[in-house]
């Protein structure tokens, strides 16, 4: 997942009759369930919306390395360390994959980094929360990757070919990530009382931020309506959040942990859970840069980029030298 509140530049969704013939033909292809490929004509708004969404998604994967990387060196066993390394490596790989998908829309990876570092592009609010104990690594896998899967499964059917194909591959790895998170907590709740307390504390801190990952209710959002018309988005934020809660509550019960929501109860009539409203003021503060770790996360990414400039320059310089050396030989 990791795309929240993606804007579309649309004042409202046009009907087919209002579209010029080219745009109408495009919309009809989407309505017929056809995939749009990089070299084909597309409305500028469609292109820009996808760039915003895919780059935000990619940035989230990259920034997401930081809270989990925070515990690789302190993982409790060699096996847990190896699994976490593999997971974080997968996520960096997802980032790479997604940057490549965005590049097919005519933006370079360096431009996307520039937008991240300047604050113009966003990444998921969730990665601005700290990982304070080993149980947080379990909670991230279980809840954060669980929420991400809710969002990403429908994205496999997204109208843009490269994004859709990237998501098919990413989803396979995400479900492994979710299982490893659940497994970490499973072991902890069966362990000592101190371990169980850590697990409950992690759930207390990660539950609401996980629900916020889906973004505020977007039933009245023109951006969401446009994204849905373009089949970039398939479900409303509230639908996905409901699905996530319905799936997760029994898992928490299985773990013997308590979800920190006094309003949570089964609603027989709707066949799902009723639950409380996340604190959206907190969400908007985090989006505005005031979360517990915003400055550190973005600071770390900027620093890595700046400190690495000499490295990247050197590789470019070497490649140019090698090309020059190869030339006279080729001319002979």
């Amino acid at each position: 997942m990791y795309a929240q509140m993606v804007k579309t530049d649309a004042p409202r969704v046009k009907s087919l009759d209002e579209m010029d013939p080219q745009e109408r033909a495009f919309q009809e292809r989407i309505d017929a369930g056809q995939k749009i490929e990089p070299k084909e004509w597309m409305p500028e708004g469609y292109r820009k919306t996808l760039i915003r969404q895919i780059s935000q998604h990619a940035h989230s994967e990259i920034v997401g390395q930081l809270p989990e990387g925070n515990w690789i060196t302190r993982a409790p066993t060699l096996e847990r360390k190896a699994i976490l390394l593999a997971k974080v490596q997968d996520e960096a790989g997802h980032g790479l994959y997604l940057y490549c998908a965005a590049e097919t829309l005519g933006i370079s990876r360096d431009e996307m980094y520039e937008q991240l570092h300047s604050g113009k592009a966003k990444y998921s609010s969730i990665f601005n929360y700290p990982t304070l104990s080993w149980a947080d690594i379990g909670a991230i896998g279980w809840l954060v990757d669980g929420a991400a899967i809710m969002n990403q499964v429908p994205l496999q059917r997204c109208s843009y070919g490269p994004y859709s194909r990237a998501m098919i591959r990413i989803c396979k790895e995400e479900s492994f990530h979710q299982r490893q998170g659940f497994d970490i907590l499973m072991k902890m709740v069966k362990g000592t009382s101190a371990q169980k307390a850590l697990a409950q504390d992690a759930l207390n801190r990660w539950w609401w931020p996980s629900l916020m990952m889906f973004g505020p209710s977007d039933d009245a959002s023109v951006h969401s309506a446009q994204s849905m018309a373009w089949k970039i988005k398939q479900n409303s934020n509230d639908e996905l959040r409901q699905k996530f809660v319905d799936q997760t509550v029994p898992q928490a019960e299985y773990l013997g942990l308590t979800i920190p929501d006094a309003d949570l109860r089964w609603n027989e009539a709707k066949g799902g859970y009723d639950f409380g409203e996340p604190d959206w003021n907190e969400f908007f503060e985090v989006i505005a840069g005031n979360g517990p770790c915003n400055a550190e996360r973005l600071g770390a990414r900027r620093q890595a980029w700046e400190d690495g400039a000499w490295f990247r320059d050197a590789l470019t310089a070497h490649a140019e030298k090698a090309a020059r050396r190869a030339q006279p030989v080729a001319a002979e």
Binding site: I62, V63, Q65, L66, E68, G69, I72, T73, K81, L85, A86, V88, Q89, A92, G93, G95, L96, Y99, R109, A300, R301, Q303, A304, W305, D307, G308, A309, F311, R312
Partner: peptide, 19 residues
């Protein structure tokens, strides 16, 4: 090498170091 996680000078390097 794990200490580098998320701080390497290029994404490909982050992946290679974790690997």
């Amino acid at each position: 090498l794990s200490e580098w996680c998320g701080h390497a000078p290029a994404l490909e390097e982050d992946i290679a170091l974790a690997n």
